[in-house]
Computed example of a mutant assay.
Amino acid sequence: MMFISAFLSGCATCDRTGSMPESARETLEVLAGQHRVCKVALAVIKNRQLDSIDSATGCRPASAPSHDSVFQAASLSKPVFAYAVLKLVAQGKLELDAPVVGYLPQGYRHQFHPLAAQPTDLVTDPRLQALTVRMVLNHTSGLPNWASGPLKFDSTPGTAWSYSGEGYVLLQRAVEAVTGQTLDQFMAAQVFAPLAMNHSSYVWNEGIAQKLLPGTKANGAARVTMDLKSPNAAFSLYTTAADYGRFLVALLNDDDMLKRLTASPATVDRSLGLDWGLGWGIEGNQDDRYIWQWGNNTGYRAFVIASLRTGDGLVMLTNSENGMELAEPMTQKILPGEHKLFQSSLLGVDILNFFCNTLRLCF
C-alpha cells in the first residue's frame, strides 16, 4: 500500500508537457487532458470576489462545460449545510452546544441506507444524549461515516475526531424538525435564493437533469450514477461552479461567520497542521489558514479551498473519478506554497482508480 500511495502521489501532479502554462484556464486544460477528466469547471476567487469561471474537457468529443453545467458536488454539500445551520444558531433557533436529539421529540430513527426510507432503527444508545450540534459540524460526533445496519457509536461523542456523514444526517433531521421544512426547501430559502444560486438543489429534479453532466470512470467511460431524489446534507448537493463560487464569496465576506466556524476547531492531524472547524477542514501554517473540503461521489470528484488571509480560493467540480488529480496542481496555481492537506490519509489512494489508471481494469 505504501508503494501504491507513493506511486500515485508522484504521478498526481507530474507534467508531461514541460512547465505549466501561466493562466489557470490553460493549466486546467493541460491537466484535464493529462488525467482524462472529461469535464471540469473551476471558479477562481480573488480578494473575496468571484474572479473567473473556467472549464475544460479531457475526453473526446471535446466540448467544455458551460457556466450553468451542473455536477454532483458530493461532500461539498457539508459546508453549505453548515453555513445554513450557523444562520439558525444566529437566529436563536439552534444552540451549538445543545444535544441534537433534543430537537427530535420522537427520537432519532436511522436509515440503514441514506437514500432508502427502509429499513430503519430507533437509536437508543444513551450516548446520543451527549451529541451536540457542534460535535456534528466538526466531526467529533463519535458516529461512523456510514452504517449499513443499526447505527452504533465508534467513540464517545466529543472525545475524538472522525469524519462522519451519519452525523450530518442526524443534524439534518433536527433542522427539518425545527424549521418544519424538508432539507431542500430549507436550503433553497436560507441559502440558494438569497445568494442567487439558481442552479443548485439538494435533490434531483427536471431542471437539474437538463444541465447535469453524467459521471464518468477514471478511463472516461460513462459511469452509471444514481439520481439523488432524497435530500442528504452530507452529499446530495447538485450545483455549478459559479453557484458554489457565489457561496464561497459570501462566506469569505462574512467575518462573524468565519470567526464562528474557525473558533476552537477539533484536531485532525497535528503533524500536518490540520484541524476541523464547523463544517470545514482547516489547514494552518505560520502565515495563513485555509478552509477546505473535498467531495467523492460515484462518477464525480470535487474540491474547494480558500485563504482566510487573502480571500483567494477556488472551487473545482468534475464529472470524473480522476477529478481529484487536479486538486493539488490547481491549488498550487491559485494558492502557491506547500499544502500539507494533500499528504493526509483523508485523500488517500483510490484503489478503483489505481487499477483503472495503471492496469486498465476499470470496474
Rank of each mutant, 00 (worst) to 15 (best):
P194K: 04
R16T: 13
R270P: 05
N296V: 02
V203H: 01
E176L: 12
P329E: 08
H110L: 05
V40D: 00
P105E: 04
Q343T: 13
V37W: 00
A160V: 04
A306W: 09
E166C: 08
Q34W: 15
S66I: 07
P21L: 11
S77W: 06
D227M: 15
K259P: 04
A302C: 12
M20N: 01
N253R: 14
D312A: 09
G107L: 02
G323I: 04
V178I: 14
T17Q: 12
E325R: 15
R36M: 07
V224F: 03
L228T: 08
P79V: 01
F355S: 07
R246T: 01
S236E: 09
L308Q: 11
T17M: 11
L170K: 01
M2R: 15
L128F: 08
G311Y: 03
A64W: 00
V30T: 07
M257T: 01
S307R: 05
T156H: 08
S19P: 13
L258T: 03
Q181R: 15
D287K: 15
C59I: 10
A56Y: 01
R25H: 14
G33F: 01
D269I: 02
D288P: 10
Y202H: 08
N319P: 13
A82Y: 02
N253M: 04
A90M: 06
S52I: 00
G215D: 06
A6E: 11
T13G: 12
V123G: 08
T159W: 11
G279H: 01
G220Y: 11
